[in-house]
Lab assay of single mutants.
Amino acid sequence: YKIYPYDSLIVTNSISVKLPKDVDRTRLERHLSPEEFQEVFGMSIEEFDRLALWKRNDLKKKALLF
Results as ranks from 00 to 15, higher is better:
1 Y>K: 08
2 K>C: 07
2 K>P: 15
2 K>L: 09
3 I>F: 07
3 I>Q: 08
4 Y>N: 01
5 P>L: 04
6 Y>W: 04
6 Y>E: 01
6 Y>L: 05
7 D>M: 14
8 S>A: 14
8 S>E: 14
9 L>M: 04
10 I>W: 05
10 I>P: 00
10 I>Y: 04
11 V>K: 06
12 T>V: 11
12 T>N: 12
13 N>K: 08
14 S>V: 12
15 I>Q: 14
15 I>V: 14
15 I>G: 15
16 S>L: 13
16 S>D: 14
17 V>S: 15
17 V>G: 15
18 K>I: 14
18 K>D: 15
18 K>L: 14
20 P>L: 05
20 P>N: 05
21 K>Y: 10
21 K>N: 15
21 K>F: 11
23 V>L: 06
23 V>H: 03
23 V>C: 04
24 D>C: 11
24 D>F: 05
25 R>G: 07
25 R>A: 13
26 T>M: 13
26 T>D: 15
26 T>R: 09
27 R>D: 03
27 R>L: 08
27 R>N: 14
27 R>Y: 08
28 L>M: 05
28 L>C: 02
29 E>Q: 02
29 E>N: 00
31 H>K: 01
31 H>C: 02
32 L>D: 00
32 L>P: 00
32 L>K: 00
33 S>Y: 03
33 S>F: 03
33 S>Q: 05
34 P>D: 11
34 P>N: 09
35 E>H: 11
36 E>Q: 12
36 E>G: 05
36 E>L: 03
37 F>N: 00
37 F>G: 00
37 F>K: 00
37 F>P: 00
38 Q>E: 12
38 Q>H: 13
39 E>H: 13
40 V>H: 09
40 V>R: 05
41 F>V: 02
42 G>M: 11
42 G>T: 08
42 G>P: 00
43 M>Q: 05
43 M>W: 02
43 M>G: 02
44 S>D: 13
44 S>A: 13
46 E>M: 12
46 E>I: 13
47 E>T: 10
47 E>K: 09
47 E>L: 09
47 E>M: 10
48 F>S: 00
49 D>N: 09
49 D>H: 07
50 R>N: 10
51 L>N: 04
51 L>E: 06
52 A>S: 14
53 L>C: 15
53 L>T: 12
53 L>W: 09
54 W>V: 09
56 R>T: 03
56 R>C: 03
56 R>A: 06
56 R>P: 02
56 R>Y: 02
57 N>F: 07
57 N>S: 08
57 N>I: 14
57 N>R: 09
58 D>C: 12
58 D>M: 12
59 L>I: 05
59 L>E: 04
59 L>V: 03
60 K>F: 02
60 K>G: 01
60 K>V: 03
61 K>Q: 09
61 K>G: 06
61 K>V: 10
61 K>W: 07
62 K>N: 09
62 K>Y: 07
63 A>C: 06
63 A>Y: 08
63 A>Q: 04
64 L>G: 13
64 L>H: 14
65 L>R: 02
65 L>E: 01
65 L>N: 01
65 L>Y: 01
65 L>Q: 01
65 L>D: 01
66 F>N: 06
